[in-house]
Design a protein around this nucleic acid. Sequence first.
DNA 1: GTCTATTTTGGCAGCGCTGCCAACAGTGGA
DNA 2: TCCACTGTTGGCAGCGCTGCCAAAATAGAC
Lengths: 332, 332
Amino acid sequence: MELKQQVAVTLAEVAEAAGVGESTVSRVLRNHGSFSGKTRERVMAAVERLGYVPNRIAGTLASTGSRLVAFVIPSLSNIVFPDVLRGASAVLEENRYQAVFSVTDYDPAKEEELAAAMLAWRPAAVMLAGYEHTEGTVKMLRASGCRVVELLDLDGDALDIAVGFSNRAAGRESAAFLLERGYRRIGYVGHDLNRDTRAGKRFSSFCETLEARGAPLVAREIVADASSVENGRLGLQRLLARASDLDAVYFSNDDMALGGYFHCLAEGIAVPSKLAIFGYNGLDIGRAMPQPLSTIRTPRVATGKIAAQLVVANAPPQTVDLGFELIEGATA
Amino acid sequence: MELKQQVAVTLAEVAEAAGVGESTVSRVLRNHGSFSGKTRERVMAAVERLGYVPNRIAGTLASTGSRLVAFVIPSLSNIVFPDVLRGASAVLEENRYQAVFSVTDYDPAKEEELAAAMLAWRPAAVMLAGYEHTEGTVKMLRASGCRVVELLDLDGDALDIAVGFSNRAAGRESAAFLLERGYRRIGYVGHDLNRDTRAGKRFSSFCETLEARGAPLVAREIVADASSVENGRLGLQRLLARASDLDAVYFSNDDMALGGYFHCLAEGIAVPSKLAIFGYNGLDIGRAMPQPLSTIRTPRVATGKIAAQLVVANAPPQTVDLGFELIEGATA
DNA sequence: GTCTATTTTGGCAGCGCTGCCAACAGTGGA
DNA sequence: TCCACTGTTGGCAGCGCTGCCAAAATAGAC
């Protein structure tokens, strides 16, 4: 196929071809320092002619900071994280930063391992989900000297920068909403809470609110693996098998809720008159449903965007609460 | 907050602390070359004590190849690409490779720009979606000497490695399926085809097949922006407003199809007796619908996985057809 | 035309690591 | 005891770039 010309063109070769010094080429290419217009042209011509592509590895080593931003995220199946990446990547690309990522699969030990691997690239910042990290991870991040951004959670103490919203508040407001609508026999269908600690926080504050108002959770069904539409459907089916007289169900997220809604459609359970459904995330799909999903819309893309902006601007340590929005749909 | 100890620990410091030479530390850490057990222990103790994190930037510069794999993908909203990343990232992490990505937003010019930025990191491989690249991109990739993997499309000529399936075949089989089921007045609802060239290929071979069998496409509706459930719903609504007597609609993907299904639910259009719906992608959500979605399941995760494996193994140039599976759901 | 202020330029020492090579042990056999 | 061998080890020259500094060129002032 193509012949691998392993030997890439170097700065020195460009300098020679343009008949100038290396540092001059470097200055021209980075548009930094001073040089004459004539020099600039000659350098650019040589760059063009040789097809020179600067070596950022060398550049980063020689200068101080890298323009890499490392994302250590729990999952790519849960749309939340692609959304965050999407918000961040636009800002990063504009500012000529590069996004690197790895996926922990919600495993703190793996997070530690991957964070270490990331730090080896000396990134400008490391972005992580939430506050629950191993001691080792925290120690490493602290010692690294690079910026740390914790995303999508505000219920805890930030290491450096935190951007997101309160999951506890989300759980609380969801409960309050259902109670205000008059639901009293409320159930829950969720996915693995030990791993997804943010879902766990929502659930526990949801339950606390219900109890405080005298209508404690009636039943719950936790599916073993990750959240999905199918698991939501299955979860609701199982929950109703055990507690058929529920009047509302809170789901760990919109995917699960959609599954629950499908179950109701398939079984002819009237929503919300017979059973109300409430989700979490505010995915676009919820708006397109025959009955718009009642849920909480979270600022996922904005979280990524703001996080990236703060990193690019090298902002001081801070916590940014982007809030969330309760969507009064037609399912609860 | 945390004090930034900008000065990271270096190999030399570890060597000094352990009372050995730099190369010895390097050998121990990479488990490469020979060294005694005693030396190993002393080195590891020093590493632990100082909290040393190797600098991969320097390592990569000094050695030949980098362990970076660059993904230049069109979108993160379309679940297809997170799925591919997911498949790849597991393999890459196992092999201590690092994934870097950027998002082109389906813009070839942006792809060129971003590919150039990626090449500056001297990645081991660049992964791109499909075959449609600018001349500049192709030239750059060829000259770079790094592996190039083109994903999710096989209808064209590969630069180096290609992994995916034929979108034309997918369009053809979708058409054949609908025709065999007896549908004759078929419409199409899709999203921006100029940008998503793979959707364009599916559509054109779909139409060709219909025509060849004497039942040309009756009507089509192309929504302006990206695919989404809402756009699918809206698209079908508009399409039916113009052509109310269709008996089947082919959607550009499952998101769009789901939107169409929701429209039917909301309007009381019986599926599939009054109107059949056919999608593309085989998302999990389709299985959980009250009526499972008829669609084509594409090997998205596997595409990422195989691509990563080939890169890790430094396999020779090749084209891998992973095929796809037609799902006979209940909507067509 | 001289002299100073300013702009433009090149040389070169690193950045932290790897890879090569030479030096230095141990080990067993003669 | 000496020799050849295998197993360990350290020194040091880069990898390709940036940043500093001094030198050279140019411009401006008189």
